[in-house]
Amino acid sequence: MAVGLQTEVPGAADDFLAGVWKRNPVFVQVLGMCPVLAVTNTAMNALAMGLATAFVLVMSSTVVSTIRKIVPHQVRIVTFILIIATFVTIVDYLIQAISLGLHRALGAFISLIVVNCLILGRAEAFASQNRIGRSILDAAGMGVGFTLALLCLGGVRELLGAGSLFGVPLLGSSFEPWTVMMLPPGGFFSLAAWLLLFSGLKQRRERKLAGEAVT
């Protein structure tokens, strides 16, 4: 059954949803761990980082897909990185124009979007081999999936580490914040918990499919 599914011509929804759920860049592919762990100490930072990455992902995939036929094979990585770095620089200026406080909170990690393997990975594996429409959908799906994953981590860390969500206090003054959740180890703990949940779900689904095959 699974083989049959893969040989079908993927529709637009499949291209988009693959990144959001089935092949989520963080929880399934475990890509781009550096920003995932570093800037998810609050939900706001996580959201901003996710959106910035998604923007770079969609824009660079669009351009890479547009020029995929004229870029010589030998210099494709150089060209892709050049395009990605351009959009990262643009995002950097845009965030500074939107909010200096946000720019300060994200710090060097904005520039480091360049080296997020997720973006070069999508450019090389998908956008350089597919039509523009599909590439945009794929990049948008991956971007949304990445943003959601970052929000999952940022939400948990902010809630436990500061008792608030998006800066709104939720747990009351009697709640003693778990400072460790705001620190780097908190990033590892919450990522581990989320990965555990996702692989648990995956195993359950596989067991279910195996059960159906038997009956």
């Binding site: 020029i67 004229i70 010589p72 150089v78 060209t79």
Partner: peptide
């Protein structure tokens, strides 16, 4: 062609 492409993208 390689030069031309990289240069124009740049």
């Amino acid at each position: 062609r390689i030069y031309a492409v990289v240069l124009s993208v740049g």
